[in-house]
Design a protein around this nucleic acid. Sequence first.
DNA 1: ACCTGAACACCGTTCAAGT
DNA 2: ACCTGAACACCGTTCAAGT
Lengths: 229, 229
Amino acid sequence: MATRSRRSERRNQVLSRERIIETAIELLDAGGEAAMTTRALTERLSTGSGAIYYRVGSRDDLLDAATETLVTAALAADPMAVSSLPEDEIRTVALALFDVIAEHPWLATRLIRQVVRKPFGTVTVGIFERIGRQVGALGVPRASWFDAASTLVHYILGAVSQNTAMEGDTPDGSHDRGAFLDATEAAWQNLAEDYPFMHAVASQMHAHDDREQFLTGIAVIVDGLTRLG
Amino acid sequence: MATRSRRSERRNQVLSRERIIETAIELLDAGGEAAMTTRALTERLSTGSGAIYYRVGSRDDLLDAATETLVTAALAADPMAVSSLPEDEIRTVALALFDVIAEHPWLATRLIRQVVRKPFGTVTVGIFERIGRQVGALGVPRASWFDAASTLVHYILGAVSQNTAMEGDTPDGSHDRGAFLDATEAAWQNLAEDYPFMHAVASQMHAHDDREQFLTGIAVIVDGLTRLG
DNA sequence: ACCTGAACACCGTTCAAGT
DNA sequence: ACCTGAACACCGTTCAAGT
């Protein structure tokens, strides 16, 4: 009786596209791409495999749909240009993407894939448009708008993807952050002579904050772009 | 008789790790990740599946090894700092990566994966070291070296990954570049009002050269970095 | 030490059949 | 229109057995 309040969108339809995507995201979050199988999905939804194909198509289509759902939500969730500075808008979009990937690590690979394979899909165009609108206000001459927006988008997606927590896909929870850092530390000693730079910044690596570094990178690029005139 | 000149590295060893990696790269180049299966590999090498596991380990290990082989070769192939300017060195490394991914599109996803999962592996450290050494000469203060190198690496890997040709993984050769651009053109009309920026730069998109745009991006970042002091 | 290849426990996808 | 679920054609990986 308590579970009766289900909005029946279209007569007696038990399975909605939304519910499939939602469940897929749960599986992906819990165990990475490898965990999102047709069988795991049909079991959770107590349905047949054909139903999923009927609603969303192939596994790949489902992954794309899940990506689109999360990215669209992430981009829509913020204040959206309350007459803010262009750099603030860029930062807002960038951090929204940073955070959604931090929450859903499997998105890193998928987002880049989406940009490559569907350059005119909702996701790609949505990000590009949002960023692109700001470059004019930044003082970038019109002829360089596309280059400027591309530079920002390439950096933002590259950085957020590369900052993904490494557990992401592997189900073996080797979270021993300590043991990992120790092994790293040991590895550095051998690298000292062949890799002077790595050795020199080793201490900065341990101290740094991904999010702040990300913002520094954006500031650097924005600064460079203002000089494109 | 003509094929007799095979260097027998270690007595009567028919299968070398190198030959497996080489064959894997061939399969990957021909049909993307999906085409590199254990069975395709064993068939081409006329061997059993166990032999591959004995030499290189899992499929994932093989993918990593193939990535490392290509990236290492790409980074080693150039002049390497003939007392050139730091920006030139950065450009050289960047273009080497750009080109190797253009030749092997499946590398895009794999390279980012490698950076995320093996932050202290040969590939990641190699790229970082190579780029990082230049930031000092660029005038970046020591305290910002790590941030500066990270910004460059994130941009470079992001840009080269996103510039990957879209056929990459799909075996269905839908290369109709013309039809694709037409569909794109049509899509733009509908976007005109909701996506003013996209509409404004549509002409620049068709004209632009990926490689040049990539270099513009690097110049922008280098410019921004020199002002970090 | 190195390789074989059958066997195992999975996959994604299709499609006749049901309602 | 929407869903079921058996069947198909694959996968990656293991491991006893061979040399």
